[in-house]
Design a protein around this nucleic acid. Structure first.
Length: 384
DNA sequence: GACCGACTCATTTTGAGCGG
DNA sequence: CCGCTCAAAATGAGTCGGTC
């Protein structure tokens, strides 16, 4: 039907026509889209040849993913093109997914009518109680939400669904919610300031900073260490952690910072293992699974550490050999065409050495070593 | 038999709760 | 107090079964 093979073999730069995206809507607009979907469905009643129509969704598999490589900038991101996959009531296999989409839309319309917001977790419990046969696990709910997002072409947040966020921020940043007191992220203790899952609220925040860098940290423990040491007083910076793979809210927040202060470089501090690089890439390029929402939040993160050169800084015994799972992630990263060349080289180095290391290994040189390490790397422009 | 989609399972991070 | 399990947010690979 579509010449995806041809498309793939000759990479093109994106244009707006190819890019599928999710709109940010008001509750009323989102409701209207659901109603349009229902009306389309009900057209079978007046049809002379009644048949239940399929739901056209944007394909979220890797086949339909495209990589944008900026011509003028060095930014890249992943986005989805217009290939369709369908949820049909006619095929036995897909019937449940078809019903799930409608059940979820019903739930969403109720939420939107009341102008409320729920977390994915709440939605799961509600749906589990209403129709356990269709939503046995949280995963079913999450997938169906993404289905509805691609069907209605609106963001998850527009549907009234929040993600409970795990992200934290600290450092030289002043946040002000409308009609609220200003929050100073340098003064909120070692735990930092929790990034809200309410994207609407994040969008309304007024941001002020005198920082010169943004540092994204993979692990909470490292984040705490740096905040406790008041690193942002020595290095004027904003510290952000997502505690592992970043959720949407944290990515959105980072994206807002990078758009508000485009001159600030963003540095990533991750473990020296394939999963660390994967986390960095999720910040940098977005992910396919999040489909239409992912590209919106990509930002140009530079890889500060740990990298191959840093292995000599840590004791030999803190190196651990790569497990099969690590090699699997490495292979997957390698096969991605988006991975830039110097990242590829680092990854090759990691696989050939067969060993990985955690950021905590730098503590062996003293607890304040991590700070010196970061300063040294930044002033030497030692990042890629 | 090939291919595609749905589902299951594995892995990362952290924190909470429970029992020995 | 330590380890275990579960929960929550992610991502990806493998398998099974139906359709062409």
């Amino acid at each position: 039907m579509e010449t995806t093979g041809l498309f793939k073999s000759s990479m093109r730069f994106f244009s707006d026509q190819e890019l599928c995206y999710a709109d940010i809507l008001t509750p009323q607009e989102a409701l209207a889209r659901i109603q349009v979907a229902v009306l389309n469905f009900l057209r079978i009643l007046s049809s002379s040849t009644p048949a239940i129509s399929n739901l056209p969704l944007i394909d979220r598999s890797s086949n339909n993913s495209r990589v944008n490589q900026g011509i003028l900038t060095d930014e890249s991101w992943i986005f989805l093109s217009h290939s369709f996959s369908t949820r049909s009531l006619m095929r036995a296999n897909a019937a449940k997914a078809f019903v799930r989409v409608w059940k979820l839309m019903e739930m969403c319309s109720q939420i939107l009518l009341q102008e409320k917001r729920v977390t994915q977790r709440e939605l799961f419990y509600k749906l589990l109680c209403d129709s356990p046969a269709y939503f046995p696990t949280q995963l079913h709910v999450n997938r169906t939400i993404q289905d509805v997002v691609t069907l209605l072409r609106c963001s998850r947040f527009s549907l009234g669904v929040m993600a409970s966020s795990r992200g934290l921020v600290a450092g030289r940043l002043l946040l002000q919610e409308p009609e609220q007191e200003t929050v100073d992220c340098a003064a909120c203790g070692s735990s930092g300031y929790a990034i809200s899952g309410d994207l609407d609220l994040l969008q309304k925040l007024t941001l002020k900073t005198d920082a010169r860098y943004v540092i994204v940290i993979e692990k909470h423990a490292i984040f705490q260490r740096l905040v406790e040491d008041r690193v942002f007083n020595h290095i004027p910076s904003i510290l952000i952690t997502a505690k592992g793979y970043p959720d949407i809210a944290t990515r959105y927040f980072l994206h807002r910072i990078s758009k508000t202060f485009p001159h600030l470089p963003i540095f990533g501090l991750v473990d020296w293992n394939p999963a660390g690089l994967a986390i960095l890439c999720t910040f940098k390029y977005g992910s396919i699974g999040m489909g239409l929402e992912a590209y919106r939040y990509a930002c140009n993160v530079k890889w500060l550490g740990m990298r191959g050169d840093d292995v000599q800084l840590i004791p030999q015994e803190s190196l651990v050999s790569l497990k099969p799972r690590d090699l699997q992630i490495a292979k997957s990263l390698m096969s991605s065409e988006i991975l830039q060349e110097n990242y590829r080289e680092e990854l090759t180095l990691m696989v050939e050495g067969g060993q990985k290391a955690e950021l905590e290994a730098l503590y062996h040189n003293g607890f304040d070593y991590l700070q010196k390490y970061i300063v040294k790397k930044i002033i030497q422009f030692n990042y890629i």
